[in-house]
Design a binder for these strands. Structure first.
Lengths: 211, 211
DNA sequence: CGATAGGTTGACTTCAATCAAACGACGTGG
DNA sequence: CCACGTCGTTTGATTGAAGTCAACCTATCG
């Protein structure tokens, strides 16, 4: 199934979409590795459905999640030689697999791929500011708004968060406990409501001025 | 003057170097802005000599330095619409200026520019791990090794650091005081020696196992 | 010289981490 | 059907690493 999200992203050129049609489609279970850290970068993937996290694991077990990827996001292309982060399915994932070589050739013709890289760079830099200079409350608020912006077209009010507290913590440079505490703080102040894996944004303004 | 560093980077295609020859050369004083944050991205720059920092300033004055750029590094291309970080001269800088449009057209033919983007992405992600999961001693050790690797071809032992303690702090997500304290700790343990703006790495192993 | 800016060191505080315990949801087996 | 174990989450008590506040040092420059 080719989702509307992907069609929209591929606007104009049809290049990536054309490649996608002929690409193998793969399924990954929750927590299954899609690419391993330090693995030779032979393939890259277009996420069709589900959520993927990229992770760097340090020898002592500390973990950093680089980004969360959703339907329409490209994964594993932007590296030289080896994958510097692993990629794992946060929940069941379907993805199209390409040879990196094919995507390289496509990129020679298709500028939208370059813009994808620029976008990636930008969100990476934004995330650096979060990790370097924001407090725990700010990080949580920014995270919720970021997820709201990505899942709904222009900021859904109810967001389905497929990742665990641990994943959030490792993305935000915090501990699980701190993530929990900040979420309950927001819940008690009625800025959000939490129902299982869904979070409803009740007071967007409160989040915006916090993050 | 066209430095050896730039020639080396431009190996093979000659594309960027050719463009550089015809580009205007500009001089910037210490602390002068090269591009402003949120400015429309019309130009990009190739650093010829000196050191540049990219900075994001928050309303309350908190600052994050995104990266330090040296001779041969490209600046201001990797963004869409506006510059998301400002760029400022750390010390007197000379740079070639291009229209972004020209670089876009060059990138259609020249794959080495794409590899530059990949490299940028990679170092950005490495820096995320530092900001998200490393301790202050680790950050300082990583920083010194990173600078040693960039300034000398394969890890000089004496490095000239053009940036202030404040710049380092804002790059590493620390305060000036913490940077100082960690540097004196390394100095007292004889891992490094400090002489004005120069730092000598006396015990590389100690730094490597710390970072 | 005095003034200013950057750097270093010390005393104290604070925010988030750590350690620890309990809770809820879920699935398995008796 | 219910007891039990597991896993993820939540909450509480305490600790600790880095931040803040403040003083002082050093170098450069008018």
């Amino acid at each position: 199934m080719m989702s509307a999200a992907i069609q929209a992203i591929d606007s104009g050129s049809g290049g990536l979409l054309g490649l996608a049609r002929r690409a193998a489609i793969l399924l990954f279970d929750r927590d299954e590795a899609i690419v391993a850290q330090d693995e030779a970068a032979a393939y890259c993937y277009l996420v069709v459905s589900g959520c993927v996290r990229t992770v760097r694991l340090m020898r002592d077990g500390r973990r950093q999640v680089g980004e969360f990827l959703f339907a329409g996001d490209l994964l594993g292309w932007d590296c030289l030689g080896t994958h510097d982060f692993a990629a794992e399915a946060v929940c069941p994932v379907t993805a199209r697999r390409f040879a990196r070589h094919d995507l390289d050739r496509l990129a020679d013709r298709d500028r939208t791929l370059r813009d994808r890289l620029f976008n990636r760079l930008r969100s990476g830099r934004d995330h650096m500011v979060l990790l370097g200079r924001q407090t725990a409350p700010e990080r949580i608020a920014s995270f919720l708004l970021e997820m709201a912006a990505r899942i709904g077209p222009d900021g859904e009010t109810v967001i389905e968060l497929p990742m665990s507290r641990g994943d959030m913590a490792d993305y935000l440079g915090l501990t699980i406990e701190t993530v929990c505490r900040q979420l309950t703080r927001l819940r008690l102040s009625d800025a959000i409501a939490i129902d299982g894996t869904k979070i409803a944004i009740r007071d967007r303004l409160a989040l915006e001025e916090a993050g």
